[in-house]
Design a protein around this nucleic acid. Structure first.
Length: 822
DNA sequence: CCGTGTTCTCTTTTT
DNA sequence: GAGAACACGG
């Protein structure tokens, strides 16, 4: 994404010239003073819409959806239940405003929850009215939009355009150093406590100054935290860096401190749209308020092309927000449900439109969802309904262990796939990332193609962070954190003592580590260390000199060559270093890909993109794999078949939520979000025991399970185990005592006993080049004996389909399956 | 300053 | 059960 002077803020911007048809040109001049928000829009007959023909942009919409598309209220709240077609409504609403020339594309700011959602929305609007006609809109996340604004305005308040964005790990590292320096941990101020508190304050727009006024000066812990907060803020400024929360908060401060800067954006954006409004926090809310303020006449240039009011000012921009308070699941990062609940109070004359018809799920799934969410009191009553019919019952499964549960998921997925559901229409959800392990182990063993969404693991690898730190240090010479990371990577004999000496020298020189490094000779250390430091300074300075002209892959490969980073990895005798070298090569490939997609993109744009990728952003729907993700990541997505795993007390709801006010209700919404992602089939599974970190513990079924009417669920339990679905048994739920589980009373008659079920482990082994052919008898550690019925795939990827004597049919990846040939 | 072995903490969810 | 922090011997 570019942020440089491509789009002038003060003129609305023209229609793209290249493909402009004559009709469009005249329409454009007619729209040179686009109506601000309300006027003359309702019965527009331009473009494709005409009086006697139905408007294609309204085609197929129900009355509420249609009202939401057509409304020209200055403030509009669309309460969109799950699967109610809100994306369609939103895109048509935008498309219609553009098509009818009510607004220039550049006058629209649409905020989505993920970059992927932004891309999709842009795509869909472009599809409706033509790519060119949609060019120039700002469709992005809060964070991306703010980065764009901050890059442009950073020099207004002591930052440069090349600022670094600190992710959570970066800010933790910084806080860690501060906590250590201050020895604050002796007062019970841990790194995570401090970083959590700082984040919270920033989301509430409380700065150091504001916090200092609200603390009790006699409480040493509070005073100490204030000092941490102060230093942290100082260090960020000195490093020319913003953390995630700053991106929003600092933009708000910028607007408040510099009204003429705010006016620039208030004039430009005439319609602001915000999706997932229920998950906005206070800072984001404040940003919206700033953007939708009327422009004071003193900030209106004489030659403005925007319609002014009687006093010469510009009226406030129109605002459309879309949300569903039942899907609010981000209170932990400051999301304030009041933003949506009190919308009508906040914005006078607001119009509210309710979308309740669901176009996604079967009635069975909706009944379950409605039943669950109905247990949250103090919500606005809302009942989803559909016309597609009841569909299949929900499948429930209680496994003995997490492995057993994972095996059930794998088996069901295999059955679904054989029945025609493509892998990419199947998703597995879980509450915590740690649950992926058991699932992955079994999936690998079963040769199921899968990928884990939001495993941003790649960028968390040490070698990738190292190389990224080089790039950051090159782009932003003020960034001391990045420089400290690479100071001695690869090893060049610069240890902690030297680092401290450098930091002290930096303070003498004005605070920038890079200056101290360049001046390393002044430290009076040994010739070897001094030489190493000067060498590093030279490499970085040379690279910095090229970033405005060189391509990103060239900058990166240049650094790798000069530092011999990859060469040293390859020369290492540690076998893991070869994999690390490959990861670095992968990063080079990522920069090439970036450069292909953004020919003009420079290092800063690349770093921005990497910093802001979200869990769901790397979603590639065409990959033909099963998707694994957390329930949080699942928001906004939908699949034909959904598995929600680990539906247990202390996991869903999570143990940690119990102590938080509103915790259990939020967890229930999370479960509700998961349920409503499913189009056709929903599976709920849990385990009787779950080993969390070494220790195996007994798990009890989630309280939410008993909120689903029993007739909606078809329980398929492991023999001898399981949660009873009879009403009398439900008192056992939450008890956590083993004896209370008992036997399930309604086991379908004639269901074959699957004796393996409570013994599934995650065992794998290396079978080398064991070859099997159809007809072979084998023995499996978990499933017992069976006969190979077919072999597919080649070499290390070959898969055996095995009919086990008691455990049913399984697919096994031969290379690693715990099997032996009989 | 470096590498290795040991103990210790930790897990909620994410831009 | 892993990754980080620490201790110790080169």
């Amino acid at each position: 994404m570019s942020f440089l002077p491509d789009d002038t803020l003060d003129s609305p911007g023209g229609w793209p010239t290249g493909s402009a048809a004559p009709a469009r040109t005249s329409a454009a001049s007619a729209a040179a003073r686009p109506a601000s928000g309300a006027s003359g829009a309702t019965a527009s007959a331009s473009g494709a819409g005409s009086d006697d023909r139905p408007d294609p942009l309204l085609d197929g919409l129900n009355p509420q959806q249609r009202a939401a598309v057509e409304s020209r209220a200055q403030a509009l709240l669309i309460v969109a239940g799950a699967g109610s077609g809100k994306t369609s409504v939103l895109t048509r609403r935008i498309a219609r405003m553009l098509r009818d020339r009510e607004l220039w594309p550049s006058q629209i700011l649409a905020i989505t929850f993920t970059n992927k959602a932004a891309g999709e929305m842009r795509e869909r609007v472009g599809h409706l009215i033509g790519r060119d006609a949609a060019e120039g809109m700002w469709i992005s996340t809060f964070h991306s939009a703010c980065v764009r604004i901050l890059r442009r305005e950073a020099q207004q308040f002591g930052f440069t355009q090349a600022f670094t964005i600190y992710d959570s790990a970066d800010s933790r590292a910084l806080i860690k150093r501060i906590v250590k320096d201050l020895q604050a941990d002796t007062m019970g101020l841990t790194v995570s406590a401090a970083s959590g508190k700082i984040s919270k304050l920033k989301n509430e727009l409380v700065d150091v100054e504001g916090y200092s006024r609200q603390i009790n000066p006699n409480d040493p812990a509070e005073v100490m935290f204030l000092e941490i907060f102060r230093r942290y803020t100082q260090e960020l400024t000195r490093a020319n860096a913003f953390d995630f929360d700053d991106l929003i908060a600092q933009t708000v401060y910028l607007f408040r401190a510099f009204p003429q800067v705010a006016a620039l954006y208030q004039r430009r954006f005439r319609h602001v749209l915000v999706d997932e409004y229920q998950d906005t926090n206070h800072a984001q809310y404040a940003l919206i308020r700033e953007l939708t303020r009327p422009v004071d006449p003193v900030h209106v240039p004489a030659d403005t092309r925007i319609e002014t009011d009687a006093s010469g000012g510009i009226p406030s921009a129109a605002l459309t927000v879309v949300g569903d308070s039942d899907q609010s699941i981000y209170a932990f990062r400051g999301a304030d449900i009041r933003n949506i609940v009190e919308f009508e109070r906040d914005f006078s004359n607001a119009e509210v439109i309710l979308l309740e018809q669901n176009y996604r799920s079967t009635q069975t799934i909706l009944d379950a969802a409605n039943a669950v969410i109905g247990n949250n009191f103090d919500r606005i009553a809302k009942n989803l309904f559909t016309e597609v019919g009841a569909g299949e019952r929900i499948v429930g499964f209680t496994g003995y262990s997490q492995h057993d549960e994972a095996q059930f998921v794998a088996d069901e997925i295999q059955k679904l796939h054989e029945a025609g559901t493509p892998y990419n229409q199947i998703a597995v959800f879980y509450r915590t990332n740690a649950q992926t392990r058991a699932l992955e182990e079994i999936f690998i063993r079963s040769a199921l193609p899968y990928r884990v969404l939001g495993g941003t693991k790649f960028y968390e690898r040490a070698e990738i962070k190292d190389v990224m730190a080089y790039l950051i240090a090159v782009a932003n010479p003020a960034d001391g954190l990045a420089l400290r990371r690479i100071l001695n990577t690869p090893k060049r004999g610069i240890g902690p003592a030297t680092e401290t000496a450098l930091a002290m020298h930096a303070d003498e020189l004005g605070g920038v580590m890079r200056d101290a490094l360049r001046d390393a000779a002044a430290l009076g250390l040994g010739p070897k260390v001094t030489g190493a430091m000067l060498e590093l300074a030279r490499i970085l300075d040379e690279a910095t000199a090229t970033i405005d002209t060189a391509s990103v892959p060239d900058v990166l490969t240049g650094i790798l060559e000069k530092t011999k980073y990859v060469d040293l990895l390859r020369a290492s005798r540690d076998p893991q270093d070869e994999a690390r070298a490959e990861n670095v090569d992968e990063l080079v490939a990522v920069t090439r890909e970036f450069q292909r997609n953004n020919p003009e993109g420079r290092l800063i744009e690349f770093l921005t993109e990497v910093a802001l990728v979200a869990a769901a952003d790397d979603l590639d729907d065409s990959s033909g794999t099963v998707s694994l993700m957390t329930l949080h990541t699942a928001k906004g997505l939908e699949y034909d078949a959904v598995f929600i795993t680990g539906v247990e007390e202390n996991l869903l709801p999570h143990q940690m939520s119990a102590s938080e006010p509103g915790g259990p209700a939020e967890e229930r919404r999370l479960f509700y979000v998961g349920i409503t992602r499913a189009r056709q089939r929903l599976h709920l599974s849990l385990a009787m025991t779950r080993s969390t970190f070494g220790e195996t513990q007994v798990a009890a079924p989630s309280r939410y399970l008993q909120e689903i009417p029993t007739e909606l669920i078809d329980w398929r339990d492991s023999p001898g185990m399981g949660m009873r679905s009879s009403p009398g048994a439900q008192r056992a739920v939450g008890g956590g005592r083993r004896e209370e589980f008992g036997y399930k009373t309604s086991l379908p008659p004639g269901k074959p006993k699957t004796e393996w079920a409570n013994r599934v482990t995650a065992t794998v082994r290396d079978n080398g080049d064991l070859t099997l052919v159809a007809g072979d008898r084998i023995r499996h550690v978990d499933f017992g004996e069976g006969r190979v019925s077919a072999i597919t795939g080649q070499g290390p990827k070959s898969i055996a389909e095995v009919q086990f004597d008691t455990a049913g049919r399984k697919r096994l990846l031969i290379k690693i399956a715990p099997i032996e040939k009989l």
